[in-house]
């Protein structure tokens, strides 16, 4: 069964950019959320294998989502894709269990590199 991937970002442009930058041979069905609360609702009701997570979002930010994923021991991988590139912030999301940090705007090459590294493609 193909993986279900959640793309969570408050910007439509960023969601579309990411969708389009995923490797062509990546076999997955994609769902989207436009803030952290929407993302958590999806994560609690659907089996999601991989999340592309923005950090700066209304309602609930990406750090809040990571904390909830950790607290509820949800079984999904998270790749943070964010414009908040401060080293402290990168460290913080990695400490909260993110698989990788990709700076925005995410290039197709960088996404392929990270996904290959973790055996997702």
């Amino acid at each position: 069964m193909a993986l279900t991937v959640l793309i969570c970002d408050d910007s439509l442009l960023a969601r579309n950019q990411l969708k389009k930058s995923l490797p062509a041979d990546f076999d997955a069905s994609i769902v989207t959320a436009s803030n952290g609360l929407e993302a958590l609702a999806i994560l609690r009701s659907t089996e999601i294998g991989l999340v592309f997570l923005d950090l700066t979002m209304p309602e609930l930010d990406g750090v809040g989502v990571l904390e909830a994923i950790k607290a509820e021991a949800m079984d999904c991988l998270v790749i943070v894709v964010s414009a908040d590139i401060q080293p402290e912030m990168q460290k913080r999301v990695m400490d909260l269990g993110a698989l990788a940090f990709v700076r925005k705007p995410a290039s197709a090459e960088k996404l392929a590199e990270v996904m290959h590294k973790y055996g997702l493609i």
Binding site: S11, T56, S82, A83, D84, I85, Q86, K104, P105
Partner: peptide, 8 residues
Amino acid sequence: NVAMGQAS
């Protein structure tokens, strides 16, 4: 947002 991230 991206530009602000760099400025921050």
